[in-house]
Design a binder for these strands. Sequence first.
DNA 1: CGGAGCGCTGAAAGCGCTTACACTCCGCGC
DNA 2: GCGCGGAGTGTAAGCGCTTTCAGCGCTCCG
Lengths: 375, 375
Amino acid sequence: MGGPTTSDTSSGHRNQPWADGVGDRATQRRARIEDVAGAAGVSVATVSRALRGLPNVAESTRRRVADVAEQLGYQPDPAATRLAAGRTNTVIVVVPHLGSWYFSNIVAGVEAVCTNAGYDVLVIGADEPSRVDRLIDERSQLERRADGVVLVDIPVAGELAESLASRRVRVATVGWRVGDHPAVVLDDPAVGALAAEHLLQLGHRELGVIGGDLDPIAFEVPERRLRGFRERCSQHGVQLAAHRIVGGGFRLDGGYAAMATLLESEPPTAVFAMSDEMAFGALMALQERGLRPGRDVSVIGVDDHEFAHVVKLTTIRQDVIGNGAAAARVLIAALQQQDATSADNVAVEHHEAAPPGFSLVARSTTGPLNGHRLV
Amino acid sequence: MGGPTTSDTSSGHRNQPWADGVGDRATQRRARIEDVAGAAGVSVATVSRALRGLPNVAESTRRRVADVAEQLGYQPDPAATRLAAGRTNTVIVVVPHLGSWYFSNIVAGVEAVCTNAGYDVLVIGADEPSRVDRLIDERSQLERRADGVVLVDIPVAGELAESLASRRVRVATVGWRVGDHPAVVLDDPAVGALAAEHLLQLGHRELGVIGGDLDPIAFEVPERRLRGFRERCSQHGVQLAAHRIVGGGFRLDGGYAAMATLLESEPPTAVFAMSDEMAFGALMALQERGLRPGRDVSVIGVDDHEFAHVVKLTTIRQDVIGNGAAAARVLIAALQQQDATSADNVAVEHHEAAPPGFSLVARSTTGPLNGHRLV
DNA sequence: CGGAGCGCTGAAAGCGCTTACACTCCGCGC
DNA sequence: GCGCGGAGTGTAAGCGCTTTCAGCGCTCCG
């Protein structure tokens, strides 16, 4: 059971695979490319080419190298590869809040695809926006840390967006667009319209909206959903009262507070919450007041959160994990194509993800207007 | 257009900072350590030492170097640092399922601490156990990818555990122990006992348990909680019927199914669900049958999930994010101490995290036994 | 028959750091 | 007056890859 075969260390001046007194048996030294080259009787250059499937390697050579590499358990050192090639094989995913259901599922989707494609996934929680600034900052290590970035509902605008665009990293976004990077974005106006349609069909005319307000300047999702909702209402001759549009921050407690506000005066008979989490909060507020969801007040959410069917929430489903996966796929496609064409000078084709689908899931928190007049 | 400019390259054989025809102004070449050295009038070795706070640098020199580096916006290239120093400044966090509330919050805790300490966080979802095997596998790149690993509820035992122990990476675990790596683990028997105590105090004698069964061979948490629960029952002279102990896999649907099973025959009057998610599922099953939680059947969970107070779930709270953070802290402490002592040969002090706390949060899904007899 | 051209391979120069080692001062004890 | 040690610094040899460029042996064409 020899170590790496003892044949003379051929080409030279490298020091012997550290045969310090230490690990005579246990710690078999990890194989380097040089070891593979030696054992296969070729140069390191050829090994490198062979293992990465580059052209100009005889098929017989390639096979031999592959066999030897396999046998030696050779795996290229990521750090060395990165340094030499300038590629990191890493994707950074940035989310506003790691612990929330929506974002963690996006991350799950991204992770599955990236890991599968051989990319490492670095997560960054942007709980404070400054984190994002620092990441994109001129002098940050962005491209030295990753080949690509997935931004999930991260508001990047103005000069920050320009700064980002000038970076060498590829970018894909989820939730909304940043510059003209490929993006996985729901057709938010259509979502709003669908919610409106559902409530209107049930006969509701006094409608409320619980929207988000994470940095309303930068984050346009709530606005877009609201627009679609409002337009559909108009088409049915229904006006949306301004005081019935309340921010909820996309979180549970925000939804709770928002519903409380809505109930204070002239309560609506039906409410569109722009996320299921807010809808859950809203249901809570109803319950506390003895109001029955779907009878006294209808509530519709968005997402089809894992718990939506626990509380029988009517909602507009989207495939959150799928969206994360889609973003990762389009990003990786861009990266791979970039690699492929870096030699030749083929024009970079612009990748774009198919817009994600959505659909109404009617459960029992919405119901027909039944004449109950509240308060 | 000219290739690399032909002017003599001052200090030798390096090629000029790539002043290709391209970015005459915009793309300022990123500063290398050599640039800092040149500008500060010292050698690269001194820059390296100065910037990393190593000894044997005159204070005046250190300051000058730091200033120049700051001014040039110099940041060491991570890949180069990794290759040269053999440290990655990266922590891998492995969780069974990225999208679930519990795990994503653990990850959030880990991420916050690590990012703060200057470590990158690589996430790996171990949806299939083979992922873990491959990660720890003899020939994997584990130590080349990260300095440390946080394993969250990852069953590693037997030879895999040994293989892991022989690796150069530091390990910390959350949820339960792997080998004698530092671990953040709840006092599970005490949790079980607390749940039992609560239900017993309310007068319940017919008790059910919804446990987990993720690989029962390797994953001992459910067993430990059950043991504590059962012992406390015994102390009160209450026996736990075997058919009233049902697996729920720690997920919502599992809890639902488990409760359904429990209700089939001789239903208990109170149920201990080992996670809130399962408890939610259980509540769902109750609702469907028109049974009122806290009156017809009491349910207590574990975690204090974000939604626990939406459904007024009585539960045993733990600080999930805090547990993740604690694991990360103990891991990083070990790493830093390892760095510090690698030169000197100080004995490695064994770091250990303080056991995380927990407490009963009584809401309304538990209530006194009121004589309702079910079915 | 003499290149030109092509397919395959190897030598060697980096990638941007860290660190072992050598060296220079300078103060100090004998 | 001389050697010695330690503080501060520089030189250069790596870390383990990728990639350029040159070279080799062919075949093909004029």
